[in-house]
């Protein structure tokens, strides 16, 4: 690790989640990046847009598909100091979902606010 990093280069990282869990691996492997990335003490935000909001659904039970249910991990993010979770209202609305359906406390924001959040970010990671 370079001195510059130890000296604390802090960038605004935004993880953009736009895919549903289980059907493809992207949601899970994106979460793995977030967990590893937490050690780098960057300014991290997570955005859930489009089908990405399905990642946060309460009541996921994967026994029948023999895959790991990783939804509880979103609740553990707080312990990694990853606390800024933003969910787009329009995406929830379009899918008949509300904040109460989500497994973890989030900030629900409009598409316009999401646009601003993206614009303010310095590194955008999308999978």
């Amino acid at each position: 690790m370079s001195e510059e990093m130890e000296g604390g280069t802090v960038k605004k990282f935004l993880y953009v989640n736009r895919k549903a869990p289980y059907g493809t691996i992207y949601a899970l492997e994106s979460l793995e990046v977030v967990l590893i990335g937490a050690a780098f003490e960057q300014d991290v935000s997570l955005a859930f847009i489009d089908d990405g909001v399905y990642e946060l659904m309460k009541g996921q039970n994967t026994k029948g598909i023999d895959m790991k249910n990783f939804s509880p991990t979103y609740r553990a993010l707080e312990g990694y100091d990853v606390e800024k979770l933003y969910v787009e209202k329009e995406s929830l609305d379009a899918r008949g979902l509300a904040e109460a359906d989500l497994i973890v406390p989030v900030k629900v924001i409009s598409a316009r606010e999401m646009t601003d959040l993206m614009a303010e970010s310095e590194v955008v990671l999308s999978f």
């Binding site: 370079s2 990046v33 590893i36 990335g37 780098f40 955008v124 999978f127």
Partner: peptide, 20 residues
């Protein structure tokens, strides 16, 4: 190597460009 290499790349590089 580990995923940390991706994060480090995001920190060190001026631009991260994703292809998927």
């Amino acid at each position: 190597s580990g995923l940390g290499q991706l994060i480090e790349a995001g920190i060190q590089a001026d631009r991260l460009v994703t292809f998927g």
